[in-house]
Simulated assay, not measured.
Amino acid sequence: MAEKIVQLSDEFWNIRGDLRIGGVLNVGTQCSLVRLAEGRFVFLDSYTLTGKIRERVMDLTDQGRAVEAVLNLHPFHTLHCAQMARDFPDATFYGSARHAQKVPDVGWSPDLVESGAVAARYPELSFSLPEGIDYISKDESVHAGSLLVFHPASGSLHVDDTFNVLPLPETLRKLLPVPRIAFHPTLKKALHDTPDAGARFCDWAERIATDWAGTRTLCAAHSAISRFKPGEFSKALRDTVSRTRRKLAT
C-alpha cells in the first residue's frame, strides 16, 4: 500500500494514505477532495499531505485558498486533524463531538459534521449516518460507525470503516466466495442495546443500496477503492445485507 492520489472525475479525487499499526503494519487510510460549485473545494476527512500529492492538491486549490471546509467523518480518525488545520487555516473544520475532545487546538465549528446544518450547506453531497449502531462507541476499539458521504455527480461513495472492500482480481473473485462489500468486523459490538438494532442497521444499508444505486466507485478507508458497473453496487450491498441479517438475528 502506497500513498497516491486517484482522480475519479473532474470533481472528485481520492487520496490513499498510510496508517501504520505499531509503526510496521500499514492498514492504510484516506481522504477525498471534492470540487463544488464556483471553484470551491471540501475535503472529506483529514490526512497529512506531503510530496507530489501535496503539490497536486495545492495546484488544484489555489494553494489551499479555495478549500472551504474539511469534513471529518469518522469520530476515531483524529491523527491528521491538527496538521490539516495548519495546512488550511482559512477552512472551516467540522467534526464529531469526539474530534473536539481529542484535538481541542483545532478551531472546530459548533455545527457537528453529522448535523442537518452541515448537510444543508453542501447540497452537492449526500450524507447518511448508519442506524442501529453507535456513531461514537464507548468502547474505543469499536470503529464500525462513521458518516457516509456520496457525491452523485461522480458516483463516488466515501466511507470509513462501516463498509470494507477486498481488492481481488475478477478472475480470482469468481473462484473464491469473497463478497465485494463487507461490513466492519466490530459491527456486532457497535449495535445498540435493543432487540431491533441489527434489523435497523440492515434496513438502513438496503436503503443505501437503493438511494445510492448510482455508486460507481466505493472509496473505503482501510482497504481499497472498488469500482462498479451499473447495478453492481446495489446487488453487492444487498448480498452482504442478506448474509449479515441472518447472522445478526442469531
Score class of each variant (00 low, 15 high):
residue 176 L to M: 14
residue 164 N to Y: 14
residue 164 N to Q: 11
residue 233 F to M: 05
residue 150 F to L: 09
residue 121 R to Y: 07
residue 99 H to F: 04
residue 241 V to T: 06
residue 122 Y to S: 05
residue 46 S to G: 08
residue 230 P to D: 07
residue 45 D to N: 14
residue 148 L to V: 09
residue 221 A to T: 05
residue 22 G to C: 13
residue 237 L to Y: 08
residue 132 G to A: 11
residue 175 L to Y: 08
residue 39 G to H: 03
residue 71 L to Y: 09
residue 116 G to N: 08
residue 216 R to P: 11
residue 153 A to R: 11
residue 124 E to Q: 13
residue 5 I to S: 11
residue 177 P to F: 10
residue 129 L to H: 10
residue 216 R to C: 10
residue 41 F to M: 04
residue 16 R to N: 05
residue 147 L to G: 12
residue 237 L to Q: 01
residue 202 C to P: 06
residue 203 D to T: 15
residue 146 S to F: 03
residue 156 S to V: 11
residue 171 T to G: 00
residue 6 V to A: 05
residue 210 T to Y: 12
residue 20 R to P: 11
residue 211 D to H: 05
residue 146 S to M: 06
residue 231 G to A: 02
residue 85 A to I: 13
residue 145 G to T: 00
residue 225 I to W: 06
residue 81 C to R: 01
residue 147 L to H: 01
residue 239 D to K: 01
residue 229 K to S: 14
residue 154 S to V: 00
residue 110 P to C: 07
residue 137 S to F: 09
residue 198 G to R: 15
residue 247 K to C: 06
residue 122 Y to N: 00
residue 107 G to P: 15
residue 43 F to H: 03
residue 126 S to H: 12
residue 231 G to W: 07
residue 174 K to L: 13
residue 22 G to H: 11
residue 137 S to R: 06
residue 43 F to Y: 01
residue 114 E to H: 08
residue 214 G to F: 01
residue 201 F to N: 00
residue 199 A to C: 00
